[in-house]
Amino acid sequence: MTSVMRKIVDRMMFALFIFIAAVVTAFLVYFIFYIVSRGYTAFSWTFLSTAPHGIKMEGGVLPMIVSSVYLTLLTLLIAVPLGVGGGIYLAEYAGKGRIVESIRFAIDLLSSVPSIVFGLFGLVLFVQVMGLKYSMLAGALTLTLMVLPIILKISEESFRAVPDAYREASLALGATKEQTIFRVVLPTAIAGILTGAILAAGRAFGETAAVLYTAGMAPLAPVSPLEGGRTLSVHLYLLATTGHLEEAYRVAVVLLVIILLFNLASNWIMNRYRRKFVSEAI
């Protein structure tokens, strides 16, 4: 190839990548603009602070916000200790071997199961067999199965990112392995674990299929974990499938904003965490 040809190809590829980036960005901007332009009336105090009423579900989304937050927090309450515990086992105790490999394989598999399958499983096991009915608890247990791989993987990686020098220093002081894990490794890995928890929270918050048949659809704010409720995403789904599109867009805006906040929080934590490790490497 002549040098002129090479330069032309180089320019063309550059233009092509710019074009692809522009298309992706334009699509995203249009997508967000479209939803916000149809649902911007969500930015109103009445909408956020009142309950829906009437057959067309006019009015606010307060019970849905409560249900979503309730369900997310309850999920984290169950999933974080389990996920972090599993992460500790995989990173600190498990060696290499067939059993550990099969655990990892199972975790990867679990993370790629479609959420409707989790919903169905939760419906059978938690709602029916365990008799929890449509409840926050049944929903949270189902979501726990779904977000567990995220928390587990990220906490395992955070534990692995803790320099061995810390463990050595702690062990050389006469700390036991348990003391080393809880007093040195865990505090060091906490930012990574929080990131995992926030990503999991974002996943749980936006989930529809796994929640629809486990936490129910009652448009009421739950108090006890044995009561059901309707999350924002389920509300959105029901509004959209019953033709209340204007209402649906407003709910979509609320969902988008909350999920955006989750992502900003996890980015913020991740940046702090990375900076810390970089400063340490110097």
Partner: peptide, 19 residues
């Protein structure tokens, strides 16, 4: 072993400062 490690301290090449 834990008592031993308290009586016999160790300093490593890479200064291990806990975060």
């Amino acid at each position: 072993p834990l008592d031993l490690r308290a009586r016999v301290g160790m300093i490593f090449q890479k200064p291990a400062v806990l975060p």
